[in-house]
Write a protein that binds this DNA or RNA. Structure first.
Lengths: 117, 117
DNA sequence: TTGAGTGTATGGCAACCATCGAACACTTAT
DNA sequence: ATAAGTGTTCGATGGTTGCCATACACTCAA
């Protein structure tokens, strides 16, 4: 593996990669949603403005390394898009695109009520 | 645990237990659907008559022990109901009940098209 | 330049899950 | 009684996953 030459101009963080929805399988989409932490993330980002929430602004009981992993899974499933702004990474739900790929799935998940205890 | 007394009349196999839909969590439902073998089972049982397909009649690339496990997961997720008839165990999709618990979810999953290769 | 803030990458670990072979239980037919 | 067919349970195994701590990379402000 070649070594990067020192950058003459200040390097920028490599922007996150996003999945093409056409290549997301149903199984991957369901697996991404079948996790309590990721479900919380999706619900919160769904109920916020686009690009409003940065990755660290979510109240989930995991450390930031695990959180970063969960966001990578959500990106790979085509569920969220991320954009860097300064030191933070902001999120939006890819609702229209995901709906086009899996019609009704995201709505059904977001509408589902949890059981009363 | 008490020992069963010898049965005077011929004993019957204990019928399968089915989940109460109210107690099925969204996470459990999604996890049950996020497996290729189980997805195949659900699709095939959905496109057949009720009580038409016995457990062994599905064309999935696993042995019967794993198959039995997958059916247990689908039962626990409230997705299928099973009934014994002779030596076989027949299946039906609990479509109406599952729809009432998670409106639109099963339809979205069954409507989802797989990616063309 | 230094430091604080934010997020990612890596390595390790524990828990979970899908699978199998084997043994078992039950039903039906011979 | 025997045998064939169907399905479950058990124990073991290998792979995956979720998590953490640590180290690193980048941005911005002081």
């Amino acid at each position: 593996m070649p070594i990067d030459p020192p950058a003459a101009t200040p390097r920028h963080r490599t922007p996150p990669e996003h999945a093409a929805l056409a290549e997301v399988t149903l199984e991957a989409a369901l697996a991404a949603l079948a996790d309590p932490v990721r479900l919380t993330l999706i619900r919160e980002v769904a109920s916020a403005q686009e690009w409003e929430r940065s990755c660290g602004s979510f109240d989930v009981p995991v450390r930031k390394a695990a959180l970063s992993h969960h966001f990578a899974v959500l990106r790979a499933a085509g569920l969220i898009e991320q954009r860097d702004a300064g030191p933070r990474r902001f999120n939006r739900l890819r609702r229209a695109e995901f709906d086009a790929r899996f019609p009704g799935l995201l709505d059904a998940v977001l509408r589902a009520q949890d059981v009363e205890v």
